[in-house]
Every structure is written in structure tokens, then in C-alpha cells.
Design a protein around this nucleic acid. Structure first.
Length: 602
DNA sequence: GAGTTTGAAACT
DNA sequence: CAGTTTCAAACTC
């Protein structure tokens, strides 16, 4: 329809003319192409890139060449390149600009490309068309009306292919208008030497493996220029990164980006069978963009839709170890972005410039993100340190006391001896005295073990005392701590070490356990909230997706583990807690009333 | 399918 | 280089 119109339009005039004349025959955009360029060859049509661009971007040429097929694909097609690069002769679109046409094996330097444009039709290529089942299918059919398909607005042009079968009007992006097209290519290249360069650059470690339609769409390559999305949250195809199925990177300057590794919104999108459920994807994307996903799920009512920009990043200190495909992200991105102690630096890129804090886009946000605060951890550690220190004091005091007693006994037994003898326990007095003097700083347990072996857990806890953060009395003791503290003293006076140690250990581990249980419970409450909202919308098909992208345990877990915000007495081992931690905290010490205590505290 | 929204590209 | 306009795809209704 339109095509015929566009098809007729230029050829008669411009077929053998330079572009300028072609423009003369047209009305509007001619002004732009009026730039007269004397570049010797068209970058397209097998020509060279404008000379001016060569020196500066020489290093880009190779990728440009090598990724000829990728160009068209990655930029505008949602489909991904498959490894196989066999050509598909039936393809209707033709590669114009890719030097591969000349020397498919050796990436030719642009400067040595033949000047004469090879007929673009000489070779078709497999590109975005990606005829899945072998069906020749045009990848994209542009609908350009005003650009004459000679600007990057046009997907075909940008991809370096002729329009063929498109719905464009006044199309000059065809063989008949090669001259005009070449001019346009030159002009475009002049304006932006990288214009035809693949927008998606692979990271050094290769992108092939990540290009797969991985469920998470997790991909390593990144957009060369980066996107500048403002409203789409980078979760719609408006976003070039999203469209190319890659994560936004530090190159992006997007706002409120949700296309980063660990993004709940993004994971919610991809965890569904996105290949089969486009409607779901779109719905999810909308929900994500409006903030419905994440802490509140898809179906949250219009109220409370907007999320605070910082929210997603605040808790990223806690990495969820379950994240499946994120290893490379952790290595590649998170490590550089999330200094463990600088939580406050995390929230940057969501609002505004991602480049500055770029990689933090990829931080992961745990369900416990809002629950665990640094001071909580400090408090817990402080408690443990106090206990550990107290244990040391008790140990020292105990030994001191026993020493004195022994001494006294000996003095009474050997009034004038004056000679220190080896103690019955095998410790010389001198050594012992030194050890005692060393006091609390000595926790290697070497001699302690003679009296009673310290459990690894206790030893580990004691080691924390070495940490200067906690040695200072920075963290005031809470009531519970004081209570236990006093209890420890009481124990000291009435009980032997063999009784004290287990008690101390029990207290310490109980504290740890309780603290962790609190976190678990809070996290589960939050998870329940999310899942219930998700359920509200998806009612089934996608309900195995939790808001943070972790699979729910199973459908049985969908029923509320909590009522009124209180955990059931025996919640299943939460899946969003580090299993090791949970095991250490909850399984080693398992007092019968543990859960009840937690409930009461909550 | 028409109208709107969006963000890249083009332009000033 | 920043701001604005143009453009076509994506999206919504």
C-alpha cells in the first residue's frame, strides 16, 4: 500500500544520482542530506566508513565487522542471535553495510573495503529475522513515513539492510537509491561515527553464553551508549537495553531503572514463562514500572504504587545466595559497586545518573532489605562480644582464684618452700600468671582446653572481640544484655567453670538464634505480604514467583504461614535465609520454647 | 486501528 | 553540551 508509493517515489529520479539530487526532488528532509560529503565510500554497501572516523574509532571497526549480524539483531529486534550464522537465502532483507560480505572470515579494515558497494542483495544474512522454523520472515518491517528510511529512526537503515516489504513511505533505503542511501550513511556516520556500530557490546568475557534466552534474561553484554529511559523503568521495549535483553549498565543514564541484576521487578518479569506469556510480561512490566511489583506484588491497588527510589537499594547489603544466574554479576558488577559498609552509597543510580554509581544498579535486594539494619547487626555482635568477654573474665578470675587457693594451700603445706612448683594441673605458676595477666585478650583456648574444650562456636564468637569495632563500648547494652550480663556474674560466684561455660555458650547461642529468628520471621511476614498480592493478580499461573525472584517453596506455602503478622509456631525453614546461618543458629541450639519466645518478642 | 506514550535521533 | 523537536516503535484503549 504505502510501500508501493514509497517504492515508486525515488527510483526514477535518484537511481543514478547522488543523494543530493534525490533530496531535491523531495520536500522536507532534503536539508539534512544536503551535507555534501566527499567520503570515498559508503560505509554501507561495503564501502568504507568515513575516513574521518577511522583513526579514532579504528578499534571499533573490528567489533563492528564481526558483529555485523548482531547489529541488526541486537538493536531492534527482540529476538536474539543464534550461534549459527548460516545465511538464509530467502531472507528478504539484505545486508548493506556489513563488510562481512566481502570477507566473511577476516574482518577487513574499513579502509580497505572495496569502494564499490557490493550489491546488498548479493547476500542476505541471518539477522533479526531469525526465522525460527526456517520460515523466511522479514525481521522488521519499518513504517517510516518521514525519514525516507535514511535515518537511524528507520530500523532497516540502522540495521544496515534494505527495506524490503516494509510499510514505509518514500523509502530510499533500497537498491535503486543506493546513492542516496550511501549519502545518508555517510552523513550519519559523520555525525556519529559509531552510528552503525553495534549498540550492544560484549564484555570481555564473552557474551555468547549469556545471550541465551535465559530465564532471567541475564546477559553480559551491555549497551554501548546506554539508554536514557525515564518512564519505562527500562522494562519495556522502549528501552534499548531491555529490548536487547540485556541489563542496563553504567553506561546508561536512565531514571528509576528496574533493569538491573537483582531487580525484583525484572525478575518478576523474567521468571514467568515470558516466551509464552506476553500478556503476563506486559502486565508484569506495568506493575513493575508503577511500583506494584517488588515489595508489593503485581496486584497492589493504585495507592501505594510509587516506590521510594532508595528503597530497592537500601538492603542490598544482604545478598541472597540463592540467586541463580548472578554469579558473574556478583563478580563483575556488585563487587565494584557495593562496598559492604557503605549502604548509603547504594541508592544512587535509580534517580538520575547511573554512570556515577552505575554498577550499583546490579545490587540485589533481599526480602530482608528493609528489616536488617546495620545497627541491628552491631547490637547483636555487641551482645556476643560482651558475653565472650565476660567468659574470659570469669575464666581468668576463676583461675586466679584457684591459683591463690592452691598457693595458700601450698604455703600452708610448705611454709618455707618459696619455690614454685609445677601445679598439679600441669601449669607452672609463672606461665599461668602470665596467662592470667594477659587476661581477656587471650582467647586462643590453648590452655583453656585443658580445663574444658571450648566449642568452635564459642571460639568463633570470642574472636569477634578482636574486632575493634566492637571492643569500644559503642553499643550500649540493652536490658536483655544486662540481664544476661548480670546473670553471668551470678554464675561466677556460685558455679564452677564447667557449669558456667555451657551456660555462657547457651546464652550466646540463644541470643544469636533469637536474633536470627526475628529476622526470619520478619522476612517471612514480608514475603507473605508479597506473595498474597501476587496471588491476587496472577491467581495461579505465576504464583510460584516471589517478589524477589525466588521461587516459593511450593504451592503449599501459599497459604499464610502467619496470621495477624505473627509467625506460626513452627514455620518451615525459611528459604530466604542463608541456610548455613539458619542451621547454626537454629539447629544447634533448639530450646523447646524458642519459637514462642520469638513470637512473644514480636 | 486510532491514539498515546516513549525514548532515540536529529536538530538548534 | 543542553534543550528541543522529530520520528517511529511500543503501547493502550
Amino acid at each position: 500500500m504505502e510501500k508501493s508509493e514509497g517504492g515508486d517515489f525515488p527510483p526514477k529520479k535518484t537511481q543514478s544520482e547522488p543523494a543530493a539530487s534525490a533530496h531535491a526532488g523531495t520536500d522536507y528532509p532534503a536539508k539534512k542530506l544536503a551535507r555534501q560529503l566527499d567520503f570515498t565510500g559508503s560505509w554501507g554497501g561495503g564501502g568504507s566508513v568515513p575516513a574521518a572516523s577511522l583513526p579514532k574509532h579504528a578499534k571499533h571497526i573490528q567489533p563492528q565487522v564481526m558483529k555485523s549480524s548482531q547489529l541488526a539483531v541486537s538493536m531492534k529486534s527482540t529476538q536474539l542471535i543464534r550461534p549459527q550464522l548460516q545465511t538464509q537465502p530467502q531472507l528478504q532483507q539484505h545486508v548493506l553495510v556489513m563488510p562481512v560480505q566481502q570477507t566473511p572470515v577476516l574482518p577487513p579494515h574499513p579502509s580497505v573495503r572495496p569502494l564499490k558497494p557490493e550489491s546488498p542483495k548479493a547476500r542476505s544474512r541471518q539477522n533479526a529475522s531469525e526465522a525460527k522454523d526456517g520460515t523466511p520472515k522479514k525481521p522488521k518491517q519499518c513504517n517510516c513515513k518521514h525519514s525516507r528510511c535514511l535515518k537511524l529512526y528507520c530500523e532497516c537503515f540502522a540495521s544496515g539492510i534494505y527495506c524490503d516489504g516494509c510499510n514505509c513511505a518514500n523509502c530510499l533505503n533500497n537498491a535503486e537509491n543506493e546513492g542516496a542511501r550511501r549519502e545518508a550513511v555517510e552523513a550519519t556516520s559523520e555525525r556519529n561515527p559509531n552510528a552503525f556500530r553495534p549498540k550492544i557490546a560484549s564484555s570481555p568475557h564473552g557474551a555468547r553464553e549469556n545471550r541465551e534466552e535465559a530465564g532471567d534474561g541475564l546477559v553480559l553484554p551491555k549497551h554501548n551508549k546506554g539508554c536514557h529511559c525515564k518512564k519505562s523503568g527500562c522494562l519495556k521495549k522502549y528501552c534499548e537495553c531491555f529490548q536487547a535483553n540485556i541489563l542496563c549498565s553504567e553506561n546508561c543514564k536512565c531514571m528509576d531503572c528496574k533493569n538491573f541484576e537483582g531487580s525484583e521487578e525484572r525478575q518478576a518479569l523474567f521468571h514467568g514463562d515470558h516466551g509464552n506469556n506476553m500478556a503476563y510480561l506486559q502486565q508484569a512490566a506495568n506493575a513493575a514500572i508503577t511500583g506494584a511489583i517488588g515489595s508489593s506484588g503485581y496486584g497492589s491497588p493504585p495507592v501505594n504504587k510509587k516506590r521510594k527510589p532508595q528503597e530497592l537499594f537500601f538492603g542490598s547489603m544482604i545478598k541472597d545466595p540463592v540467586h541463580r544466574l548472578g554469579q558473574f554479576q556478583q563478580d563483575h558488577q556488585i563487587k565494584a559497586s557495593v562496598p559492604p559498609s557503605s549502604l548509603s552509597s547504594i541508592p544512587g543510580p535509580r534517580v538520575g545518573n547511573a554512570a556515577a554509581l552505575g554498577p550499583s544498579k546490579f545490587t540485589y535486594r533481599s526480602l530482608l532489605a528493609d528489616l536488617i539494619q546495620p545497627h541491628d547487626i552491631k547490637e547483636l555482635c555487641a551482645i556476643l562480644v560482651v558475653y565472650a568477654r565476660e567468659a574470659a573474665k570469669m575464666l581468668a578470675d576463676e583461675k586466679d582464684t584457684s591459683l591463690k587457693q592452691v598457693k595458700c594451700q601450698r604455703e600452708t603445706s610448705y611454709p618455707s618452700s618459696g619455690v614454685e612448683k609445677v601445679m598439679p594441673d600441669g601449669c607452672s605458676n609463672g606461665i599461668q600468671a602470665e596467662n592470667i595477666k594477659a587476661g581477656e585478650s587471650r582467647f586462643d583456648g590453648s590452655d583453656v582446653t585443658k580445663e574444658r574444650p571450648i566449642s568452635p562456636g564459642t571460639l568463633a564468637l570470642m574472636c569477634y572481640e578482636q574486632d575493634t569495632i566492637f571492643t569500644a563500648p559503642a553499643a550500649p547494652l540493652n536490658d536483655l544484655t544486662r540481664l544476661s550480663y548480670n546473670t553471668s556474674f551470678q554464675l561466677l560466684h556460685g558455679q564452677s567453670m564447667t557449669e558456667i561455660y555451657p551456660e555462657l555458650e547457651r546464652i550466646m547461642l540463644t541470643e544469636t538464634r533469637d536474633c536470627l529468628k526475628k529476622l526470619i520471621t520478619l522476612g517471612e511476614i514480608k514475603e507473605t505480604k508479597c506473595s498474597s498480592k501476587v496471588r491476587g493478580v496472577n491467581s495461579g499461573s505465576q504464583n510460584d514467583v516471589s517478589s524477589n525472584g525466588l521461587a516459593m517453596t511450593n504451592s503449599n506455602n501459599q497459604h499464610e504461614p502467619f496470621r495477624n503478622g505473627i509467625a506460626d509456631t513452627d514455620p518451615p525453614p525459611p528459604q530466604n535465609i542463608d541456610p548455613a546461618t539458619t542451621a547454626n543458629a537454629c539447629h544447634k541450639v533448639h530450646p523447646p520454647d524458642g519459637n514462642r519466645d520469638v513470637k512473644a518478642q514480636i
